[in-house]
């Protein structure tokens, strides 16, 4: 396997830098070799650019892919949108000689070339496949006794024919990672349903997008969860900022939203502040206190144990 270039995208560095910080810290702790894809630009965002003009979308994506090719590294994404744009473009360009040549005509003008020599990864499937649930569980120092609502996000799983990560109706791999931190992945109705942000809906129809978010939040609350765990900053923004918006409408959820990097960091012993939880709009002090207590209690008891992995993690999906 090649080393990894971290592709941070737009939303994480520019709105939720805590996720970027958390990702770097957990990758280092796990001994993963990574470096930034320094001159990367927008992936570009699938919802708008793929809708607008396929060639522009492919060309901008191919520039990012070419940057990683120059370094001879694979790309590691921490956002479902970046994963979707870069992975889909990579697959399309690898298999379509005509498009590859068209894109290279544009790339030539900036002295670059796309050759199709690297792979695009997402941190969730990377951790599951290349690190493994058992090894991740072994690395955990502070098993988190909390109840989590796992949100995969649409583009991590779908289209399944391209993603090849198994079922989009009853996925389990992300739940397995979450349970490796000691947390319980709580089943809830509509678990695989969309957060409402994608496809340019959030940017053009904010109110409408929040109706879909409210649908999800209502069902998470009903299931009794301590936090939401996601794999994408766009879903993250939708749940975090969405709760603030719905608060003004009289709904007070107060569910803290964590990217998986942040949850994993807490289980590795980093503090809530080191993981940037205070940089969310929704800051739930009770949750932060609970995490601090868990981390302190284990320290007092001189915890030496390992996570006992459940034999068969539930998919946690109930009918939509």
């Amino acid at each position: 396997m090649k080393e990894l270039s971290l592709f941070t995208g737009c939303l994480i560095p520019n709105r939720y830098p805590g996720i970027e910080k958390a990702t770097g810290l957990v990758l280092d702790r796990l001994g993963v070799k990574w470096s930034y894809l320094k001159e990367a630009a927008c992936c570009p965002a699938p919802g708008i650019y793929r809708s607008f003009d396929k060639i522009t979308w492919l060309t901008l994506a191919s520039r990012n892919l070419a940057l990683a090719e120059e370094k001879d590294t694979d790309i590691l994404t921490i956002c479902n949108g970046c994963f979707s744009s870069l992975m889909d473009s990579n697959n399309i360009l690898k298999n379509d000689e005509g498009l590859r040549s068209e894109v290279n005509t544009h790339l030539q003008k900036i002295g670059k070339e796309y050759n199709g020599t690297i792979e695009v990864r997402h941190i969730i499937e990377f951790l599951h496949t290349d690190i493994g649930v058992q090894k991740l569980g072994d690395a955990v120092e502070k098993p988190l006794d909390i109840r989590a609502a796992v949100h995969y996000g649409c583009h991590l799983l779908k289209p399944t024919r391209e993603r090849k990560l198994g079922s989009a109706e009853c996925p389990v791999f992300f739940d397995e990672l979450v349970e490796a931190t000691g947390a319980t992945s709580v089943p809830y109705e509509g678990k695989t349903s969309c957060c409402g942000a994608g496809g340019g809906v959030r940017s053009a129809m904010l109110e409408t997008s929040f109706k879909m978010t409210e649908y999800k939040l209502d069902r998470m609350i009903k299931a009794g969860v301590d936090c939401i765990v996601d794999a994408c900053p766009f879903c993250h923004l939708q749940y975090d900022a969405g709760q603030m918006k719905l608060k003004r409408n009289g709904k007070n959820y107060e569910i803290p939203v964590l990217h998986f990097s942040q949850l994993l960091g807490l289980a590795l012993g980093f503090t809530t502040e080191e993981m940037g939880l205070h940089l969310n709009e929704i800051v739930n002090l009770k949750f932060e206190e609970k995490i601090a207590q868990i981390q302190k209690r284990l320290l007092l008891n001189n915890f030496q144990g390992k996570i006992v992995l459940k034999n068969k993690p539930r998919s946690g999906v109930e009918p939509d």
């Binding site: 699938p46 649409c154 399944t160 969309c194 994608g198 809906v201 129809m205 997008s209 879909m212």
Partner: peptide, 12 residues
């Protein structure tokens, strides 16, 4: 046309 979140449920 612009109300679709491109979640791919329909396609799947």
């Amino acid at each position: 046309l612009w109300m679709c979140t491109t979640c791919y449920n329909c396609q799947e």
